[in-house]
Design a protein around this nucleic acid. Structure first.
Lengths: 188, 188
DNA sequence: TATATACTGTACCTATTGGTACACATAAGG
DNA sequence: CCTTATGTGTACCAATAGGTACAGTATATA
């Protein structure tokens, strides 16, 4: 791993926080510059296509994190129930028990989503499909598995909206618990 | 009803569509001007405090619509089950069966939400509380009613996120059906 | 019809926007 | 030590941002 890659990744993480706070259109280069500590020179060195490339990189990075830490476990054909349990744990960790929002969801609702439609679409499709597959393998019928998968992803996203709106992260943890309970095979 | 009020309300509705499409920061005055057909003169006549007042007016307008068409029916102590059924119908109509997003939810996740925190908070609190009250009156225990109310509002918001993300409005109608089924007293 | 009030178009302002150019620093490899 | 790569700070740019000023046009009411 060369030095460049490592630092570009640090830049991505820093820029992500700015987008999380201000949205895409709301994140001016000045804001990005100040909150990341990176000058324009560095920023345009890592992201030659400017702001849009920054956003693409950030969304790809989040997607990759979920691919690796969530979807992969769900696709593990050996232990579907354990994969689902791992998903709930990773999701709770990632969203800091409701204190963080989902950048993909925010971009989907927000300004100028067109350039990012594909990444957003893929993220939610992968998630729902991987979860449905896992549920299928735990013994649910295909339609029931698909319905439950959609219910879980919908619930997580909705809970993030409500947690932020009501400034009450507990909405998120409560919802996660409720969704967990709805899947009998993983009741602990 | 004087002419002024009527036209200001038309302006609000037109501006709302722009915010729905581009978000707050993403809606430039030029974009608002062009998409609404209103010149800066008119815009600043109706909203002397500029863009922020436009957004406040829009959010207040949406809130008022829900207050009148949704929360009011829920608070009707005569027929709680019918009030809940009316809520589902109004919600389905308002969000155009999943083709429209919730501006309050979008602003909650999006850029510069601070100035609008109060309206957003009130909207979701009113909704959840009115629904919980109605469920209580249909015979559920208080904790069960509160849980179900949260589940419904969370589900609606999450479904809007997913419907937009996957460009599939059916996610919304399916979710609405599923939530309806979960409330035994209104099963049709 | 006179007049006050509601509404609108245009010209203009300054600050900030995203983006570029480029000299410079830094460090590793030969 | 020289060269090549990667990384960075600064000055600069045209375009656009949100906002203001104000003269002008409708319109309602008396």
């Amino acid at each position: 791993m060369t030095r460049e890659v490592a630092e570009r990744h640090d830049a991505i993480a820093a820029v992500a926080e700015v987008f999380r706070e201000h949205g895409y259109a709301g994140s001016s280069l000045t804001a990005i510059t100040q909150q990341t500590g990176l000058g324009k020179g560095s920023l345009y060195h890592f992201f030659p296509n400017g702001k849009q490339e920054m956003a693409e990189a950030v969304l790809e990075d989040v997607s990759a994190w979920f691919e690796e830490n969530v979807f992969l476990a769900l696709r593990d054909s050996e232990a579907p129930a354990r994969g689902i349990e791992q998903m709930f744990e990773a999701v709770d960790r990632y969203f800091r028990s409701g204190e963080r929002i989902c950048l993909l969801g925010a971009f989907a609702l927000g300004d100028s989503r067109e350039p990012f439609e594909r990444v957003i679409h893929r993220y939610f499709s992968s998630w729902t499909e991987a979860l449905a597959e896992a549920l299928l393998r735990t013994g649910f019928t295909a339609p029931k598995a698909a319905e439950m998968a959609e219910e879980v992803v919908v619930g997580i996203q909705g809970a993030l909206v409500l947690a932020r709106s009501r400034q009450d992260p507990q909405v998120f943890t409560r919802t996660l618990q409720r969704l967990r309970r709805r899947i009998p095979t993983i009741q602990s």
